[in-house]
């Protein structure tokens, strides 16, 4: 039995589609996603703070996670938002402040 010969143009089309998908992934952020991400990081930072306090993780790890969280916060402040209403922007700014506060606690615990 013979497998039919696949044309190169199909392969080319697939590659281009994939490349397009990858490029599409890195588009502008939506307000909902931003909010989710900020809240998720705030929770992560809070868990890390407890973990450091309880000795579950070394302080070095706490510092690493702090740096990650800080870079997420920074990116969020710089990010352009798609279709953001006034309420959305306010919510996001609130989440950013909350994340910042948690990061400060983590920094205190982990000794940044």
């Amino acid at each position: 039995m013979r497998i039919p010969h696949r044309s190169w143009s199909t392969l080319g089309a697939v590659v281009i589609a994939l490349a397009g998908a990858l490029v599409a992934c890195s588009g502008a952020t939506e307000p909902d996603k931003q909010l989710d991400s900020l809240r998720s990081w705030q929770a992560s930072v809070r868990l890390a703070t407890s973990a450091v306090h309880l000795g579950w993780t070394p302080r070095r790890y706490g510092r690493q996670l702090h740096d990650q969280g800080a870079s997420v916060l920074e990116e969020s402040r710089k990010a352009k938002l798609k279709d953001a209403s006034a309420a959305d922007s306010a919510a996001i700014r609130g989440a950013q402040r909350a994340l910042e506060a948690s990061l400060d606690s983590l920094a205190a615990a982990a000794g940044s």
Partner: peptide
């Protein structure tokens, strides 16, 4: 339960600690 979404591998360091 904590509302943590995994976006970086570093977050997984805490996964087994509780």
């Amino acid at each position: 339960p904590r509302g943590i979404r995994v976006e970086r591998y570093e977050q997984l360091g805490m996964l087994l600690t509780p």
